[in-house]
Amino acid sequence: MRKFLLGKILQYAIVMAVVVSLNFLLPRLMPGTPIEMLGGEGVWLLSQAERDAITAKHGLDKSLGQQYIQYLANLFRGELGHSYNWGQPVGQMIAKRLPWTLLLTGTALILSTSFGILLGTFASWRRGKKSDILSISASMTVSSMPSFWLGMVLVAIFAVQLKLLPVFGARSPWTDYTGFRLVLDVLEHLILPVTSLVLLTLSGNFLLMRYSMLDVLGSDYVFMARAKGMTEGAVVYRHAMRNALLPMATAFMLNVGFMFSGAIVTETVFAYPGVGRMMYEAALARDYPLLQGAFLVISITVIGANLLSDFLYPLLDPRVRRPSREH
């Protein structure tokens, strides 16, 4: 077990090193010189001396190796550079927005997985019946809709037409709610974007759980549980579901990354003040330091989530926790 954990940590350390290095290399592989990126359209007006000064100021006259060391040193100090567009430190900008994205994607992830498990179990139990076929068709239909369109439809119906929920943002502007009122306000703003993200990922979770349940329900050990005279509840929930959840744990891990990319579109549609919308804006403004910082933070979050679930998975599956001695 200890060997397993050490191996995992080493594996993730390598992944992290690759991600950090890619983040360093990518902007340097882009066409054009840093001067053109920094100076924008007026760059041709600058003299050679001025160009050299700017290059030196940013340490870009040094060798690639030295730049890499400098980059790592900055990274350890949490120094991610300044946004071209807003002039603020990238670290601060991300720190301000990351909690919103975590709230949005975390909620969506938990709901999508839970609903997927519940619906999938239900559908497998009703296999081939009307409700099973109906729920498969419904989930296919919803997941085939583009997420930006789905988001706009939700806004049009629930916010604009029915006026039940706020149209955009994470909090009502010009208010200084506190305590319970604040929580309620945040939740109200959370409903539509979360729904949009959940609908986007639900069908995958639902179909996986349904398939996984069907697979397990047909297994010999579930048959044996029935032969032993266990109650229907014990057979389905104790014996079948416990095993059917194993692939869901892996899906959960993969969905962490997927949720972040989904958040870019969803946060933009709902003008939600998270990292996703910030990345969209940064891309439009060619704000490379900001983009780079956001990529890095998201990568680290996804890797962290994967590491966590890798540590949790053995708790679910004894075959991983205690590899066989006999074979």
Binding site: D220, Y221, V222, M224, A225, L246, D317, P318, R319
Partner: peptide, 8 residues
């Protein structure tokens, strides 16, 4: 396969 893999 008659024994459930996740239980002792």
């Amino acid at each position: 396969n008659a024994l459930n893999p996740v239980f002792k």
